[in-house]
Design a protein around this nucleic acid. Structure first.
Lengths: 244, 244
DNA sequence: CGTCTTTACTGTCATATTGACGAGAACTGC
DNA sequence: GCAGTTCTCGTCAATATGACAGTAAAGACG
C-alpha cells in the first residue's frame, strides 16, 4: 500500500474569509484587490497562508482579515464555511484553503494592507455577477457563503449579527429582506420575532426618526436557534429542493 | 509584513471519515483500530494522508475509506463535516485533517486493510462514552458528526440514505427514532412523510412479515429538503438553544 | 374457518403557527 | 389640525402539529 520511499505529502495551507454585512440596502461581501501574483489586480476574498507551521486556523483567519482589511473578528460571529482543495485551484502549486464565514454589522470601513492593494465592501450581486471575475475559485466560495447565510438566518438568530448593538424590528426585517431578496410582511414579521423568546430584548428606548412613529429598540437576546424556523417565502414553484 | 526569508509553511494534510449507519437498533459509526503509531491499538476514524500532493480531497476520502474498511462511497451521500487543525492535535507534527461525513445504509460488513488493524461498526453511544478512548481529537469529531446527522435529518430527506433502496415507513421512522433517541408517534410520522411531496415514492410492493399487516414499500423520492422541517421533539426544557 | 395477536394505516379534534390584511398609535412637517 | 409615514396590535382563514380512537390485513392457533 505504502512503499518505503513514500513520504507524507505536504501542501500549502491558506485561510480565506467570506465576511458578509448588510449596508446601503444590500448584502455585501468584503473583497480585496490582489496586490501580488497570481491574479494580481483581481478581486479576491481576504486571506492568505498560515504565518508559520504551528499557527491555528482560527488565529490565521483573524490575523489575515486584520492585516488585509483592518477588520477585527473578536467578538463577532464566525464559523467554518468549508475547505476548498481542488488540485488545480491555484496555478502556482497545490494550495488548500479553509474558508471562514463571518457576519458583521455595518461598521468602520476597511483599510487595505498586507498583500491587498485595496479592500472594500462589494454587493453580493456584483460579486456573483457573470461579468465579475474573482481570483481562484473564489466565486464558488462566495456562492456557498451567500447560500449559507440565506439558510442560516432561517433557523438561527444570526440575522441580528448584521445589526448594530441596538436595532429596531424594521432593521432586522430589512436584513432578512436583503439577504433573501424577498419582501416580508412587517406585521407578521413583528409578531414572529417578538413572539420568539430570547430573540430580542427590549431596551425600553425608542428611535427618533424624521418621519413616522418611533420604533422600539432591541438588543440581541440569548437564543441562538429559532424554533420553529423563520420560513423563507417559497419560490414560485415548489420544485424539488436541494440539499447542501 | 513578510520578511524576505519567509517561506510558505507546509502542513501534512489528512482526510478522515465519519461514516454513519443505522443497524442493530442503534446509530453506529465506522471505526478502525490503528495498526501504527501514534495511538497504535486505539480506535480512530478511518482516514489518512493524501497519497500525493495532487490528490483531490474527495478522492482521498473515497480511497482511504476503501483501503481501510472496504466500503465504497460511490453513489452514497457524503459531505464535508469540517476541518480540524489545532496545532497540537497530532503529537508527531502539524497535521490538518478535512473530515467527511457519510450516511450509508446497512450493507456489507467492513474489511480491515491499510493502516487499520481492524474495522467495525461501533454504536455511537459507545464511541462517545467517557470510557472509550479515541485517537487524536476524533471524539470531538464524532460528536460533531452525530450532532450534524441529528440536525440534518430535521430539514432534509437524508434519513432515507440510511435505509435500503426499498423501505417501509416504519423503517424510516426507526431511523429517526434511533438517530434522535426519541420515540415518535407512528401515525403522525406517517402523515408527515407521506404528505411531503417528493420524499417517498411508492413502489406498489408490500413487505411480507412473519406477523402483522404488510407494509407498503417506498423508494427515495426526488426531494432533498424538507419543508416544513420535521420537528425533533423538544427537549424537556426549552432552554436557550445553541448555534453550530 | 373463526378468533387472537400483531403491525399498518386512516381519521378526528383541539391547538399552534402562518399568511393576508384592517386599523389604530405615534411621530414630523406644514 | 391635517397629511404623510411608520410602527404595532388585532382578526380570520388556512395549514401544520400533537394526541389518540378506530379500522385493515396479515400470520398463528385451535
Amino acid at each position: 500500500m505504502v512503499d518505503k520511499s513514500w513520504k507524507i505529502p505536504e501542501v500549502a495551507l491558506a485561510v480565506d474569509l467570506a465576511v458578509l454585512t448588510v449596508r446601503a440596502g444590500a448584502l455585501q461581501i468584503m473583497l480585496v484587490e490582489r496586490g501580488i501574483e497570481p491574479y494580481r489586480g483581481k478581486l479576491a476574498l481576504p486571506g492568505g497562508f498560515l504565518s508559520d507551521v504551528d499557527e491555528n486556523l482560527d488565529d490565521a483567519a483573524s490575523r489575515e482579515l486584520a492585516e488585509e482589511t483592518g477588520l477585527e473578528l473578536a467578538g463577532l460571529h464566525f464559523e467554518q464555511l468549508g475547505t476548498y482543495g481542488a488540485a488545480n485551484r491555484d496555478p502556482r502549486r497545490r494550495v488548500v484553503t479553509v474558508c471562514y464565514l463571518a457576519f458583521v454589522p455595518e461598521l468602520a470601513s476597511p483599510t487595505a494592507g498586507g498583500d491587498a492593494r485595496s479592500a472594500a465592501w462589494v454587493p453580493a450581486t456584483t460579486a456573483l455577477d457573470q461579468r465579475t471575475e474573482l481570483a481562484f475559485d473564489h466565486k464558488k466560495i462566495v456562492e456557498d457563503a451567500v447560500e449559507r447565510a440565506r439558510s442560516k438566518i432561517e433557523y438561527t438568530t444570526l440575522a441580528a449579527a448584521f445589526c448594530a448593538p441596538e436595532f429596531t424590528v424594521a432593521d432586522l426585517r430589512q436584513v432578512y429582506e436583503l439577504v433573501w431578496d424577498e419582501p416580508l410582511d412587517p406585521r407578521n414579521f413583528n409578531r414572529k420575532v417578538t413572539g420568539t423568546e430570547g430573540f430580542l430584548v427590549a431596551t425600553g428606548a425608542q428611535t427618533s426618526r424624521q418621519s413616522g412613529r418611533p420604533a422600539a429598540l432591541y438588543r440581541r437576546g440569548p437564543a441562538h436557534l429559532l424554533h420553529p424556523a423563520m420560513l423563507r417565502p417559497p419560490p414560485p414553484k415548489p420544485d424539488t429542493t436541494r440539499t447542501s
